[in-house]
Amino acid sequence: MNAARNQARDDEPRSNGEVVPGGGRPVDGERAVLEAPDINRALTRIAHEILERAKGPEKLLLLGIPTRGTVLARRLADRIEQVEGRPVASGSLDVTMYRDDLRLRPARALGRTDLPKEGVDGRIVVLVDDVLYSGRTVRAALDALNDLGRPTAVRLAVLVDRGHRELPIRADYVGKNLPTSRAETVRVCLAEIDQRDAVLLRGGQR
């Protein structure tokens, strides 16, 4: 039971479960590759890039993938509103039911899905996640969106792209490209959940 609740969302060695050892503090052998100001700058840049490409916030809908993607989508939405002076729609999209690795692990708890009342039809949906790795989470998100309606376009924004894709998927907006080995672990900490902002890297042969 608890195993199901604490299950990290991904099949990859990436820690984003609710319970993180050491909270926001780096544990042994972890080093920060991005600090709070770096994350801040990256999000500001991504917000401008999203706006520029969409030519205004009207049709935009930022959908975060729980748990940390939701926080990032919220922050991007706030930043776009500061720039434009107009609110932009945001929400969260849980993809658990669409994952391809459900049978490899015990059944897991679902995350939140929050969509605006108007739905996704005719919107430019920007999926937001913390780490892009195998691409399987994004595939699940695309399938989930397909059942919810027909967006005009779907784009992808991630804070960290660590490579090692297993599917033909790429991000439109990337905070930082972080070349890693598969033996390494990337952990994203966000103040709303982990009491501090940082991207931490651990393990692997250098």
Partner: peptide, 26 residues
């Protein structure tokens, strides 16, 4: 914990009944 997990899961699944495609591939 079990009971709450079922109720919380149901809370999320309740949204599916309101969608036009009331189906999940799970």
């Amino acid at each position: 914990d079990d009971a709450l997990l079922i109720l919380d899961t149901a809370e999320q699944l309740a949204q599916v009944s309101g969608r036009s495609i009331k189906k999940l591939p799970t």
